[in-house]
Design a protein around this nucleic acid. Structure first.
Lengths: 187, 187
DNA sequence: CCTACCGATCGGTAGG
DNA sequence: CCTACCGATCGGTAGG
């Protein structure tokens, strides 16, 4: 097997273990076993345990950054942009639900300078999101509520998608999920 | 200091460390230092590291179970019950945001039989919640959407409250938060 | 409540 | 890619 292929396999197994047990509770020996290797052999493919976490976190952060960029340049109103952003979140969660949890919960185990780099990426994304919300309020498209509250409610409301065991049965419900979050639950 | 008082102090410090660093990344030596003790002395007050996690998780689970019970017996329609439940979630998060994160994220580090006991408590709560949602749909108070999706969106939409640094500035916004979740973000 | 210490396990390296 | 091994750290105990 090509070296990069094996590396890819290791990263996928790592993301899975990080999701199931958490970063700290995953040992390099666990990971080695999952890819049929001895622990020491992992280091022919990866630099360190943290390097894998960093790669998973940054890769996911970039998905959101790129999604944001392509939404921002569209000629649609802030409310439509928000709907697209929620769709982005649902889409990323569904397409790669093993690694998106590291992005959400395990990033705090990064050490400097990766930690700051990650947090800045995230902050940048949230600020862009916030600007869209503020524009939406200004145009009376959104309720005149503290924009940060709207942001946090929106960001968290898709956070069940990747630790639900029922993710498979729900992937076709994207439109319903967006509708619930945007328009509420009332009939 | 009375023995139970010190124990209480240890549990509060533990909840804080579990929230900030995660259960696995918190060592008994870290915890000891936080309460001005040597690691071995902790064991005069607590049985084990996991016992503390269990206590924190179960204590929080009980808050939700009790809240659910008092809401269920009220003579109000399903939609009003759901609003009360969201208020319960916001209230618990605000009143004890250091330990509610263990309840949400760190419980998976429990071992048997505590793990099953916890999961059953949680399942029971979710089932009760689900029944209220189903009744709401039946009475055409709620959108006719997969009730599980509604449940998960509701449960996750308050999950930002305890890892936000801005929790203090938002505690007065309880009504706005509930309104956003129930009625959506559109003006 | 402390000092002293236990076996187990950790991430990672040396050397081939 | 493996065997063999490193120092560090872990949760927890003995004994006073």
């Amino acid at each position: 097997m090509a070296k990069s292929k094996k590396r890819e396999q290791i990263l996928i197994a790592a993301a899975k273990l990080f999701r199931d047990r958490g970063y700290q509770a995953t040992s390099m020996r666990d990971l080695a076993e999952a890819v049929d290797l001895k622990a020491s052999s992992l280091y022919n493919h990866i630099g360190s345990k943290e390097e894998m976490l960093k790669e998973i976190c940054i890769k996911n952060a970039d998905k959101f950054t790129h999604g944001m960029r392509s939404i921002q340049i569209q000629n649609i109103n802030p409310l439509e942009k928000i709907k697209s952003l929620i769709e982005l979140h649902v889409g990323v969660a569904i397409s790669d639900y093993t690694s998106v949890i590291s992005f959400n919960d395990e990033w705090r185990h990064l050490t400097e300078p990766s930690l700051t780099a990650f947090k800045e990426k995230r902050k940048f994304y949230e600020n862009q999101f916030l600007e869209i919300i503020q524009a939406g309020i200004k145009q009376s498209l959104l309720k005149n509520v503290n924009p940060k509250i709207i942001l946090y409610v929106l960001l968290s409301s898709t956070r069940w998608l990747y630790d639900s065991n029922s993710i498979n049965e729900l992937t076709e419900s994207k439109a319903e999920i967006i509708d619930l979050i945007v328009e509420g639950i009332i009939a």
